[in-house]
Design a protein around this nucleic acid. Structure first.
Length: 550
RNA sequence: GCGCCCGUAGCUCAGUGGAUAGAGCAGCGGCCUUCUAAGCCGUCGGUCGCCCGUUCGAAUCGGGCCGGGCGCGCCA
């Protein structure tokens, strides 16, 4: 990559100028493109250590900088920045590389084949996936795509909280049983904090259609509720799978919490913790010493009535993940799990899992806007907006793009009207339209008899808009690497808009197919093909379609 | 009360300790005889919530305050 090569050359010239190379040598694209393609602050860093004027140091370094074909200009600017301008020759070479690598352009092997599991969505199996969980879907999915593209072996996992002691499953089972009895005209009691969504009534109706009043005699207690939950579970999981699929998300593995109980892993983990002294008994319950590892208090592992809490199965689950050979486990969690993070980190430290191998990423809430109003959502009233409804309302492409536009730690306003609008305002169309225009040019070129495989003289690409587009294409691999490393899929949506904009500007300024200038046309066609490759790769990472016509 | 996240243009948000803080939308004014105008160009718009500190340099790091969101169960 550009940066690596330049970093080496820079280090050489720093040494040649008689300075010590700082351990962190930073070369970054400056915010203002007028300051060149890449810039370093190394002279200022050295200046404060040596007590010399930064510009003087910068000039000494620049004087030692070897001639390199890739760089056309090196300037000392501002307080002491060294700015590099990449030569058109280098940019043209980057395009050649892009054309050669095709769908692989932008990929790297920095992950070194490390096995990573990304667990995301993992909504409680008590109903459809709603918008609160939905944001984690595209986020986890695109993060997984990014890691794959940068050389990791990635597995996507959905954790199904169907454990026998899950309180939410209990409440859901009781709600379903109540609806079932209600429909049959039997006496029933609807739980106070029960699930009031219409889907629960429909599920009860389906059970009656299938099995009639077969379950009328089941007691209205924990066991009865559990039975109803288990009856509904396959259907709920199937629906969640379909909902995710509709958003373009397909998990490699659906892991069931109940499995951890069936295999005895939860029990074994509890015993191991007691033996190690990481857990202790108090007030009839078993507590995990998470406070020693930074939690604000110890946490109950096993309730006084003998039933383990979710922490017990989560700890067993974490060990299970690493036993399956993953070197790194990434958790993508919603904002309601904020308090869970220190707790789980402490728990994992207590069981001896290297916290370095465990990453917990959190995203913030989504607010839905429609007609300029914030939609108020309530689980109690059953007015949750589901992921399925979003996809059906705005389409998969817009749903994914909009959910990915903001950084995860920032609250997200999802404007349904804007996402639905097939207009210039919609950023998804802006990007897709660039791809469509590329395809239009290629169609026209084919009709006019251009040979897409023909050699072209890329050195003819020197117009400002051509160079700007070349720069953008050359920048792409660094951008993918950065988005992956900083776990920031939203960078891709921003980059895709920038690339689309640069292309639209090129399109407006530079006529590609010109009968009077066949060699320039051939070169521009290569640039257009490169743009198509990067747009398609980018949209592919985002899981958004790249249409040939709109 | 404690913890996590956020506070940047009228709105929604980018911004890796660097240079004159950016984009989209909204507003105003232009551009279709040519590969799709779902596009392009110009213009207006800022005490980066406030204060103090660290630094050669702070929207960015630290402390304190103010404002908003979320979380603080032997629920998950």
């Amino acid at each position: 990559m550009i940066r690596d090569t330049l970093t080496q050359l820079l280090a050489q010239s720093i040494t040649a100028a008689g300075f010590e190379v700082p351990e962190q040598l930073e070369i970054e694209p400056p915010r203002d493109p007028r300051h060149g393609d890449l810039a370093t602050n190394v002279a200022m860093v050295l200046a404060s250590r040596l007590g010399q004027p930064p510009r003087k140091i910068a000039e000494a370094i620049v004087a030692e900088f070897p001639d390199a074909a890739m760089v056309t200009g090196i300037d000392v600017a501002g307080p002491g920045f060294i700015n590099f301008t990449l030569s058109p020759a280098w940019l043209q070479q980057a395009l050649a590389r892009c054309l050669a690598e095709g769908t692989r352009y932008g990929c790297s092997d920095q992950g070194g084949g490390e096995r990573v599991q990304v667990e995301f969505v993992s909504a409680n199996p008590v109903g459809p996936i709603h918008i609160g969980n939905a944001r984690g879907g595209p986020y986890g999915d695109v993060l997984a795509n990014l890691l794959q593209a940068t050389g990791y072996q990635v597995e996507r996992e959905f954790y199904v909280n169907d454990g026998p002691h899950n309180t939410q499953a209990q409440i859901f089972g009781r709600s379903l049983q109540a609806r079932y009895r209600e429909l049959l005209g039997l006496p029933f009691e609807f739980p106070e904090d029960g699930y009031r969504g219409e889907y629960v009534v429909e599920m009860a109706r389906e059970i009656i259609q299938r099995d009639g009043d077969k379950y009328a005699d089941l007691p209205q207690d924990e066991a009865g509720a559990r039975k109803f939950f288990e009856m509904a579970l396959p259907e709920i999981v199937a629906a969640m799978r379909e909902d995710c699929h509709a958003l373009g998300i397909d998990f490699d593995n659906w892991f069931y919490e109940s499995q951890l109980y069936e295999t005895g892993e939860v029990q074994r983990e509890i015993e191991r913790l007691l033996q190690k002294g990481a857990a202790y008994e108090k007030d009839g319950a078993i507590w995990l010493r998470t406070q020693e590892y930074g939690d604000d208090q110890d946490r109950v592992l096993v309730r006084a009535d003998g039933r383990p809490t979710y922490i017990a199965s989560d700890v067993a689950y974490a060990r299970n993940k690493f036993n399956r050979g993953f070197e790194r486990a990434i958790y993508v969690l919603g904002p309601d799990h904020a308090g869970y993070i220190p707790r789980m980190k402490a728990a994992f430290a207590a069981i001896g899992i290297d916290p370095q191998r465990l990453e917990i990423l959190m995203y913030q809430n989504v607010r839905l806007l429609e007609g300029g109003q914030v939609l108020s959502l309530s689980k109690r009233k059953g007015t949750l907006v589901t992921m399925r409804e979003i996809v059906e309302s705005v389409g998969r492409d817009a749903a994914r793009f909009f959910l990915l536009m903001r950084s995860a730690e920032s609250h997200l306003d999802f404007d349904l009207d804007l996402a639905r609008s097939e207009s210039e305002d919609n950023p998804v169309y802006y990007v897709q339209y660039a791809h469509t225009r590329v395809c239009g040019i290629q169609r026209e070129a084919q009709a006019q008899g251009y040979d897409p495989a023909a050699e072209a003289d890329l050195s003819l690409l020197t117009a400002p808009q051509e160079l700007a587009l070349l720069r953008k294409l050359a920048q792409y691999p660094d951008e993918v690497a950065l988005a992956a490393a900083s776990r920031a899929p939203h960078r891709l949506t921003h980059f895709s808009r920038e690339l689309a904009q640069t292309f639209h500007q090129f399109y407006t300024a530079c006529r590609v197919l010109d009968k009077d200038n066949p060699s320039l046309s051939a070169a521009r066609l290569k640039l257009v093909t490169g743009t198509r490759i990067v747009l398609a790769n980018l949209l592919g990472l985002l899981g958004v379609s790249a249409p040939e016509r709109m």
